[in-house]
Amino acid sequence: MGVQIAAYVLGVVAAAEAVALGVLWIRYTRQRAELDEARSRLDTKNMLFTGGREAVKQVWQTANILRKDGLGAAVRSSIEDLADWAEVERPDLARLAPGGKIVIAFSDIEESTALNERIGDRAWVRLLGRHDKMVGRHVKKHSGYVVKSQGDGFMLAFAQPEQAVRCSVDIQRSLRRQPNGIRVRIGIHMGKSVRRGDDLFGRNVAMAARVAGEADGGEVLVSEVVRNAVRDVDGLEFDDGRDAELKGFGGKHRLYAVAA
């Protein structure tokens, strides 16, 4: 009889311990879930706070530009802006041309501010939207990459100079078929593959930007190294060239316009 009672008591104790352990496990699970949720809320709050500060900063800066200079100034870009961005960000484009060289092209709408003022802000924004789609379509067709676009300017990259030149020619042809008042200047240069941590990328970007800055509206202007690389390609012709002094580069440089 005593043995039966002892066994019964031990069973009750074991059952109680099992219930207690179950309660403790449930409590632990709930507390952990609550802790994870709290951490998630905190991370989200920090993310929103940080992103919100940047968003407010951008909106404030844009509002100041709009207040002082109008919408045209807010969306206006330049070849120099894009070149400066590339110099700071140093995007890694070496994958485009693992064997050696990369081709950089800049495009920019000539006298965009005057055109903006003439047609008005709404029409200008719609015009930019159509222009962006057109440029993107031709870049994709010629296996290029839009490295950066800002307002009325583009920075493009290609693995081969022929791709860059033919893409630029197609862009100019499309613009001539559209009586929208847009005249775009395009400059192309090529050099060694981009590498992070040195200035090879910066120099090639700067040279391409300077070449584009020398171009006239409706013109595709290339550096001598690009002209030499494609001079024997069927369907591509160039003028006799002109000498130019390029900011940041010593001496004079021969630049060539692609024949229309």
Rank of each mutant, 00 (worst) to 15 (best):
G2H: 08
A6G: 07
A7W: 03
V13F: 13
A18W: 06
A33L: 15
D43Y: 13
T44S: 10
A55F: 02
V56Q: 11
K57R: 14
Q58T: 13
V59A: 13
A63W: 02
K68F: 06
D69F: 14
G70E: 06
L71N: 04
G72Y: 05
A73S: 12
R76G: 14
S77V: 07
S78W: 05
W85R: 14
E87D: 10
V88A: 11
E89T: 15
P91G: 11
D92M: 10
I104V: 15
F106C: 08
D108N: 13
D108G: 11
L115E: 08
R122H: 12
W124L: 12
L128N: 07
G129C: 03
D132L: 01
R137W: 01
Y145Q: 10
G151A: 05
F158A: 10
E162I: 10
E162M: 08
C167V: 03
I171W: 01
I171K: 03
L175P: 06
R176H: 13
G181H: 13
R183A: 14
R203Q: 15
R203E: 14
V211M: 03
A212T: 09
A212M: 06
A212G: 14
G217L: 01
V230G: 09
V233F: 11
E237V: 01
R242D: 03
R242T: 09
R242G: 01
F249D: 05
G250V: 08
G250H: 08
G250Y: 03
G251D: 09
H253C: 01
Y256N: 05
A257H: 02
